[in-house]
Amino acid sequence: MNNYQNIIHYIQYIIIFIIRVGSGGYIFVQGWEKLTGGFTINGLVPVVIQNEDSPIWFKLFFEHIVAHTTGIFNIIVPLGEVAIGLGLLFGIMSQIASFFGAFVMLNYILSDMIFTYPVQLAFFIILLMNPAILNKISLKSMILYIKEKGEYKHESHPARRR
């Protein structure tokens, strides 16, 4: 029975690892394309404001905040996506990256940009629901494991033991 539980744990680790790396790679590519492709949020502002599917409070946010600070959002959105992607790809602060990934996907859904964002949101939620596994498969955890396994007690040369 114990062997069966170990197999289940390994399968969970593999699934969460694949979701983490896949989600990280996907959002990194999205951010990189925006960063290098001349992304601007200026065209999205009127679309969201006139959209019938977005909530009123979200439209007001776009009208009164985003519309007046598009320069900041033109920088924050791509850099945020790149940072989230790198965090998930390398396993650095994965839980925080997953939280902000979910936040970004919710904003895209509220903007009525459906595409693949619900699937990405579901993956970020799965990551957020598994903090212990995320911690165990993090870069820090892997470095500590390798360091622990690689250490050995080095005895000094007998002539130098005085």
Rank of each mutant, 00 (worst) to 15 (best):
V21T: 02
V21L: 14
V21F: 13
S23A: 15
S23C: 12
G25V: 06
G25Q: 06
Y26L: 11
Y26H: 11
Y26R: 09
Y26W: 13
Y26P: 01
I27T: 02
I27W: 06
F28H: 11
V29H: 14
V29L: 14
Q30P: 00
Q30L: 12
Q30S: 05
Q30V: 09
G31I: 00
G31Q: 06
G31W: 05
W32C: 01
E33S: 12
E33Q: 15
E33T: 11
K34M: 12
K34T: 02
K34F: 08
L35W: 10
L35R: 04
L35K: 03
L35G: 01
T36L: 15
T36D: 11
T36C: 13
T36G: 10
T36S: 15
G37A: 08
G37C: 09
G37W: 12
G37Y: 13
G38D: 10
G38P: 10
G38C: 11
F39I: 01
I41V: 14
I41H: 09
N42E: 11
N42I: 03
G43A: 03
G43E: 06
G43K: 08
G43L: 01
G43P: 00
G43N: 09
L44C: 02
L44E: 05
V45W: 01
V45N: 00
P46T: 02
P46A: 10
P46G: 00
P46V: 04
P46F: 07
P46S: 05
V47T: 14
V47H: 15
V47G: 06
V47L: 14
V47K: 15
V48N: 01
I49G: 00
I49C: 00
Q50F: 05
N51E: 05
N51G: 06
N51S: 15
N51A: 05
E52H: 10
D53S: 11
S54W: 14
S54V: 14
S54Y: 14
P55R: 14
P55L: 13
I56V: 15
I56M: 14
W57V: 07
W57P: 01
W57Y: 14
F58P: 09
K59N: 07
K59Y: 08
K59H: 09
F61D: 05
F61V: 05
F62C: 07
E63A: 10
H64M: 08
H64T: 12
H64E: 11
I65M: 06
V66S: 02
A67W: 00
A67L: 01
A67P: 07
H68I: 01
H68S: 07
T70G: 01
T70P: 00
I72Q: 07
I72C: 01
I72P: 00
F73P: 00
N74F: 10
I75T: 08
I75R: 10
I75W: 15
I75D: 05
I75V: 13
I76M: 13
I76Q: 11
I76L: 13
V77M: 12
V77L: 12
V77Q: 04
P78K: 04
P78L: 06
P78E: 07
